[in-house]
């Protein structure tokens, strides 16, 4: 589904060049829930940005559904139609209601209004937020916002969802709900998810755990990750 071939990535800080990823290769299968763990600064976010086609400044190759991603335009088109994103701090658009936030990716893809409405309602229902559809994000709790964000990421039935520390801003009970929800939706739609996390409870839901240290993959297995 997603394939990374020997990725090297470095950041330039003034004169200094700091390498954040060393020769990372990765294959994400259809409907797989992959956890990325590792200490702070190990390169999780850097790798996620590349997986999410947000960053084109690296050495190596990225294939999305067999198509090599080379340009910013192509990446934008793929992100718009095939990818979903969940952020640590929800990143809902404050001037849009919950409904409109979830609807936004459908609008971007020019889906007709009746289908949009139906699809949004399905997703709001699935994340248990139907009754809050008209509310703006500032009137929702963190857990509720993240559920809306999850609905937004899933509304297009994307092939891949990228989630960077989606539970880090939530209390443990809410975090647990959100994670279960993610897993459930992923299985329903056959969506692959790559999630970066420090969180053991999160990791315990993953099909597969990749552990990064200092920009290198140190383990890749279907087991618990101990951070």
């Amino acid at each position: 589904m997603l394939q990374l071939n020997s990725i090297n990535k470095s950041y330039r800080l003034g004169q200094l060049e700091q390498q954040a990823l060393f020769d990372v290769s990765l294959d994400v299968a259809e409907a797989e829930l992959v956890g990325l763990c590792g200490p702070s600064g190990s390169g999780k976010s850097t790798l996620l940005n590349i997986c999410g086609l947000l960053d084109q400044q690296f050495d190596g190759q990225v294939f999305f559904s067999g198509e090599q991603v080379t340009g910013a335009q192509q990446a934008m088109r793929l992100r718009r139609s095939q990818l979903g994103f969940v952020f640590q701090r929800f990143n809902l658009v404050p001037v849009m209601s919950a409904f409109e936030n979830v609807e936004y990716p459908l609008q971007l893809n020019r889906i007709a209004a009746p289908q949009r409405k139906q699809r949004v309602n399905e997703l709001l229902e699935a994340v248990g937020m139907l009754e809050h559809a008209g509310k703006r994000p500032d009137r929702l709790s963190g857990g509720q916002q993240q559920r809306i964000a999850l609905a937004r990421a899933m509304v297009l039935k994307p092939r891949l969802v990228i989630a960077d520390e989606p539970t880090a801003s939530l209390d443990s009970q809410t975090a647990h709900q959100v994670v279960s929800l993610m897993k459930q939706l992923s299985h329903q739609h056959g969506t692959s998810i790559v999630v970066a996390t420090h969180d053991d409870r999160m990791s315990s839901h993953c099909d597969r755990i990749i552990r990064l240290e200092d920009g290198r993959v140190v383990s890749d297995k279907e087991a618990l990750c101990v951070a």
Partner: peptide
Amino acid sequence: TLAAMGTS
């Protein structure tokens, strides 16, 4: 965020 979702 909007750009990540593919907004031009």
